[in-house]
């Protein structure tokens, strides 16, 4: 229905023309998605917000109870610790991998990407099961140490913080590699060549050109890892111990065991606020960097 307009047009038909314009018509293609997300995403989130303020009438009790409980503060600390440590380690391991892949030729890169994509697409339950086997008492790591070095590693490696960190880092590395690799591949190689010709050492080329240009991607990767890990539920439940409970596990406890929806909802809103704040801070860093 595209109409070509020639000459002066009366105001009444201008509005019609606007409605008939391809931009306007194409915008209608958003309708199914908007409906679905409004009905099955926005309403549920609104319900969580309302539920967090409701317990036989409007109340802030849920929030007061949470802020006053030592259990909550301990769990929030654990959550932030795991989130930040896992994000940092994943970035430290993901960056060299992205850099390595960016230096390969097309075929080699496609093969190397399978090593990143396969874990990315592997079920978190498959990974959790595998890590229980790898890190367990009769697991590969302990058995190798026993047989090769006849060294008995004291202490457990799973169902505690070590297990959680191994699982989390494994889960997060691909999310670090993707944005950083995209950034490195998009950098014009001429810049590096120019720096080299101007007498920079390879170390200088990396730190003063490549790395600086990749900072926005590092920030994007950090934002992604923070959002992903702050709400993590399966890894601490399966690979952690009792003291590695995270906020998501506490929400689950209030919903399904304590049947206190008000507390569960208030916790969810606080989790949302914390993750929103972290994303906001990281996006500020990103913007500041660009100006």
């Amino acid at each position: 229905m595209s109409r070509t307009l020639t000459g002066p047009v009366p105001a009444s038909t201008l509005w019609q023309a606007k409605r008939a314009s391809p931009d306007y018509q194409k915008a209608w293609f958003s309708a199914p998605a908007i409906l679905l997300i409004a009905a099955v995403f926005v309403i549920p989130l609104a319900i969580v917000l309302l539920q967090s303020l409701y317990r036989e009438g409007f109340t802030l009790q849920g929030y007061e109870q949470i802020l006053g409980s030592t259990l909550f503060w301990r769990i929030l600390r654990t959550t932030l610790e795991i989130t930040l440590e896992a994000s940092l380690i994943s970035l430290l391991l993901g960056y060299p991998v992205a850099y390595f892949i960016s230096q390969l030729n097309r075929t080699q890169r496609a093969i190397a990407m399978i090593f990143v994509l396969l874990p990315f697409w592997t079920s978190i339950l498959v990974k959790s099961f595998a890590f229980i086997v790898i890190l367990g008492e009769q697991g590969i790591v302990k058995n190798l140490l026993r047989q090769l070095l006849s060294y008995e590693l004291s202490g457990s490696m799973v169902f505690n913080r070590i297990g959680v960190m191994v699982g989390m880092v494994h889960f997060l590395i691909p999310f670090c590699v993707f944005p950083i690799l995209n950034n490195l591949l998009a950098q014009p190689p001429e810049l590096r060549r120019a720096a080299l010709i101007m007498g920079a050492s390879r170390r200088q080329v990396f730190f003063r050109v490549t790395f600086l240009l990749s900072i926005p991607a590092i920030v994007a990767a950090a934002a992604m890892t923070v959002v992903l890990s702050i709400g993590v539920f399966v890894t601490p439940a399966l690979l952690g111990g009792r003291r590695d409970m995270m906020v998501a596990n506490l929400i689950d406890y209030y919903t399904r065991e304590a049947l206190d929806w008000n507390m569960a909802a208030a916790l969810s809103i606080m989790l949302l606020a914390v993750s929103g704040a972290l994303i906001w801070v990281l996006s500020r860093v990103d913007n500041a960097d660009r100006h």
């Binding site: 549920p44 929400i251 909802a265």
Partner: peptide, 17 residues
Amino acid sequence: MPILVPTIVFALGLYIY
């Protein structure tokens, strides 16, 4: 939005809804 909001929050909302 669905990838920006922690899944657990969304899941709780769906559960009550």
